[in-house]
Amino acid sequence: MPLSAPDSLAARPRLVLASNSPRRRQLLTELGLAYEVRLREVEEDFPASLHRHEVAEYLAAHKAAAYAPDLAPDELLITADTIVCLDDDVLNKPADAAEARQMLQRLQGRAHDVYTGVCLLHGDGRQVVFSDRTQVVFRALSPAEIAYYVEHYQPLDKAGAYGAQDWIGMVAVTRLEGSYFNVMGLPVHRVWEELVKLGAVGV
């Protein structure tokens, strides 16, 4: 039973997820939350002066600001953005298959960081912004393995051109330091903790 549905929780805000990511929907659903999905186009540009962890937080808050005018007083909006960082470079979603192959070629045999920024915006104006970091290590990959993944899966909607839950995650990821779910697109342990603080969920 969704945790925000029972009558005893009727005073809690209605959750709204502003994301087209099936992974984020899956994670919130498996967390036992009831929510509505709202979508709109939001530019994902960010100032070049931001530090790496600040980029994900900035983008999550930027997305939330686009939805804020239409948010009802009894609603709580969840926005998120995931970025992959290799050294000082931010790898967002690839523009095409060629760029996806280039990104994976750069990541293979290396360690990189995955940051997911989250913004929780309450209809009454309260806002919480945070991020979580996970270090991911890839083994060396052959050009054939990279080409196979790009051809048979959908890397164009994923930061860094890969999904840890996909085939490439099973064959390439040798080590994770941090939350696996954060790499999927949502640090659910932090989301739950902050939602509890806001009085939006509980058991």
Rank of each mutant, 00 (worst) to 15 (best):
A48I: 08
P47S: 08
A66Y: 00
A65M: 10
I83A: 03
F46S: 01
A61R: 13
A64K: 06
K63R: 14
A61Y: 05
R38W: 11
H62L: 10
F46N: 02
I83F: 03
H62G: 01
A60S: 14
A61L: 08
E36P: 07
Y67C: 10
A80F: 13
R52K: 11
A64M: 07
E54P: 03
E57I: 09
L50H: 05
E41I: 09
L39M: 14
F46G: 01
E41Y: 04
A68I: 03
E54G: 11
V37M: 08
E54S: 06
T79N: 11
D81G: 07
I83W: 02
R52H: 12
H53C: 09
Y35T: 15
E43G: 04
A61W: 04
L76M: 13
E75D: 08
R40W: 10
A48P: 01
K63W: 00
A48E: 10
V55K: 00
Y67Q: 08
R40S: 12
P69V: 05
H51F: 13
L76S: 05
A64W: 02
R40K: 15
A68P: 07
D45Q: 11
S49R: 13
I78H: 02
A64E: 05
E44I: 03
L39K: 15
A56Y: 06
E75S: 10
I83K: 00
P73F: 10
S49N: 10
P69A: 04
F46A: 08
E44N: 13
V55Y: 02
P47H: 10
A56P: 03
L71K: 07
A66D: 14
A72G: 12
E44W: 10
F46W: 15
E57S: 13
L71F: 07
E75M: 05
A48T: 08
F46I: 05
P69W: 02
V84K: 01
E57K: 11
R38Q: 13
H51E: 15
P47N: 07
H53V: 09
A72Q: 14
A65R: 14
P47V: 09
